[in-house]
Design a protein around this nucleic acid. Structure first.
Lengths: 189, 189
DNA sequence: GTCTATATAAGGATAGAC
DNA sequence: GTCTATCCTTATATAGAC
């Protein structure tokens, strides 16, 4: 197994970083080239252009986020504990969500192809949480009047919105507060 | 009182629209000029440049959002009803929050001046909600174990994150689901 | 206050040599 | 596969006439 990084690989990784930091609109081919150390020609040899490279980067970021979330949510513990673990997992709060932030990018939302990995990832996590909530209801851990899909949406939204509040204030405090508030509402009595 | 719209006024309004649609990075002076019908010279006569014009636009948008939120939250009803009214108020969900979306703009977050109105507005709404929650606790409408600040953060985050989920899927459904989920958790028993 | 002209850099990409 | 050269457009202003 080789440890050498191909040029295409470095282009994708640099694009992933830039998309996270600056979004699609704020990321220029030039910036990608500088960060990756690749030359002009290489980029257009490996990818058709900015949208094509961004698509590869977004797909990888989306898959990775999904794997991380599933790792926690399918872990050990009661339904409440798994949701708690998901909400409390280590996050670089001020950087925001590398997937969620793309929804504020007009060019991403305008393209079905670029938006698809974003949509599919958030949807998969939401469905997974919804199932866990239903499981918790069966076990009597959650009130039966709660709706799994709705609670799952509220949980995901709290995380995504927590990033917004944190970035607005320049501190992770509001993110943490929102998560604790939600957990206090969810806590089994 | 005059009804004529000054050029400066049209520049600010056009900038507000574009910031909402495309963010700061995605909004060019040229696009502002085209939308406002103003000429190159006018813009640089009234404003020092893009950041200066954007600041005027952001301040106005922030003030307006704050007024709208306060109007609902200071309205009639029990604490729960006022929070419910805030969560259910009419929103153009797929457009997202004109203030919250700015937190995904690297140039806005990097500038203390541009970020300040965003931070102050979200903070003011959060504090207002926190007070309402505490009021509800005193009245026995909310469990005393709940923390006003934390619940307020969870409420605001659910709204901000609801926009993210909705825009990812191209439908307001997830926003509505998240709001209903949160309300079911908050509902007085 | 507004207009037109001009300017430098960056955005985004193609062509062709090596 | 990579490099350099070149291209056209847009971004973001400044200068100066009217």
């Amino acid at each position: 197994m080789s440890t050498s990084e191909s040029t295409a690989e470095r282009l994708i990784e640099s694009t992933r970083e830039l998309l996270w930091e600056r979004g699609y609109v704020g990321t220029s081919p030039k910036a990608i080239l500088e960060r990756s150390g690749a030359g002009q020609g290489s980029m257009y040899h490996h990818f058709k252009g900015k949208p094509d490279l961004a698509l590869a980067a977004i797909r990888r970021t989306a898959e990775q986020l999904r794997a991380t979330a599933e790792g926690v949510l399918r872990g050990p513990g009661t339904p409440y504990e798994r949701i708690e673990a998901y909400l409390l997992r280590e996050r670089d709060v001020l950087r925001g969500c590398p997937v969620g932030r793309l929804t504020m990018d007009p060019d991403v939302v305008a393209s079905d192809e670029l938006r698809a990995p974003v949509d599919e990832t958030l949807d998969a996590i939401r469905e997974l949480i919804a199932g866990i909530v239903e499981e918790g209801k069966e076990q009597g851990q959650f009130a039966s009047r709660l709706d799994g899909e709705e609670i799952a949406a509220a949980i995901l939204a709290t995380v995504q919105g927590g990033y917004v509040l944190a970035r607005a204030s320049g501190s992770p405090t509001a993110f943490d507060a929102g998560v604790r508030g939600l957990l206090s509402l969810l806590a089994p009595r």
